[in-house]
């Protein structure tokens, strides 16, 4: 098992390198460049960069070196000095900027994750244990409606309903304007709408997954056996069905993480939430690639670590996998 964990850990590093290399290449292939975004060619006042000035600027930002050299510099800085480069617009170190904003994003993502897993599992159970009941039909219909609504459409609707039509919640930001240290209640008040948006789609996905898995387990031989030997239905459900259904759930939750992170980008943008997402989106609009690569490493690492933890947890719980992994190394 230790060998297995170790190999999986090692394998995260080339993956992150591969992904950043691909991103780097794509940025390189693209026609636009940061220097050009500084002063757009058709500025109103006729300000234009002369070719010499442009070259000087490129050299200043390091664009005069070939792409692969810049990539190696970037990797070296990251590995040796834990340096993610500087924000091209503000000049601040990207690592500082990101670590400053990350807690704000994690706050949204974490809360939403806990809510949607808990609610989704309960709804999925309610649906599956009463298959074809009215409740099941209603929940299934809602699930389908929820997954059919893109996050930003949800965000706009909730914004309209609960911030404008019924002004119960603020339209955005993490704290009231002009307040330096918000109270816990104020913070929660500002979190409600973004977290609600971020949770809803996740609830639907979890609920559908949970329903499908439980139904599959309910059809299995060991459930029939345990019923046949006279176990009470409660014992069958909680000891046999839910335990087996929890493994696909763990996998499903991990596979949903990239979507959660992508979703939080949109939510942060819509609700002007000062997290990694709105920072990266802004960077994307300004060719500010050190920031984007930093966000990519941060979130990519997070998801890959989560998937590793999930695999370990599954292996630890499920004897079939433990044995297979043990045989491997």
């Amino acid at each position: 098992m230790t060998g297995y964990i170790f190999r999986r850990l090692i394998y995260i590093i080339p993956l992150l390198l591969l992904m950043t290399a691909i991103t780097f290449t794509m940025i390189e292939l693209a026609p636009g460049e940061f220097v050009d975004a500084l002063i757009p060619p058709d500025t109103a006042f006729g300000i234009r960069l002369s070719p010499e000035e442009r070259e000087r600027l490129r050299a200043r930002y390091g664009f005069d070196k070939p792409a692969y050299v810049r990539y190696f510099i970037w990797v070296k800085e990251l590995v040796v000095f834990q340096n993610l480069g500087t924000d091209l617009v503000t000049g601040a170190p990207v690592l500082n900027e990101l670590t400053q904003r990350w807690p704000m994003s994690l706050k949204l993502q974490g809360t939403a994750l806990v809510i949607y897993v808990a609610v989704g599992v309960m709804l999925g159970m309610a649906s599956a244990f009463r298959q074809y009941s009215a409740l099941d039909h209603v929940l299934t219909a809602f699930g389908l409606i929820w997954i059919s609504t893109p996050l930003f459409v949800f965000a706009i609707f909730l914004l309209y309903l609960f911030a404008l039509a019924l002004p119960i919640f603020p339209v955005g930001h993490e704290k009231p304007i002009g307040v330096e240290n918000p109270t816990i209640l104020q913070s929660i008040h500002h979190m409600v709408l973004p977290v609600a948006v971020l949770s809803l789609t996740g609830i639907a996905a979890t609920q559908r997954l949970m329903r499908a898995t439980i139904l599959e387990v309910l059809n299995s031989d060991y459930v029939r056996t345990s019923r046949a030997k006279g176990l009470r239905e409660r014992v069958v459900r909680f000891r046999h069905v839910l335990r087996n259904a929890s493994l696909p759930l763990v996998t499903g939750v991990v596979l949903g993480l990239p979507e959660l992170i992508g979703g939080s980008f949109i939510v942060e943008y819509v609700f002007s939430w000062p997290g990694v997402g709105s920072y990266s989106l802004n960077a994307a609009l300004h060719y500010n690639y050190p920031v984007l690569l930093g966000g990519l490493i941060l979130n990519g690492g997070l998801v890959l670590m989560a998937s590793l933890l999930a695999d370990i947890a599954i292996g630890w719980v499920d004897p079939r996998i433990r044995i297979a992994a043990g045989r491997q190394g």
């Binding site: 991103t23 993480l257 060719y287």
Partner: peptide
């Protein structure tokens, strides 16, 4: 597993 949304916004932003 990769947060492909970040890649997608990066790439679309840079590819005009």
């Amino acid at each position: 597993l990769f947060p492909s949304f970040i890649l997608i916004i990066t790439v679309t932003a840079f590819l005009e």
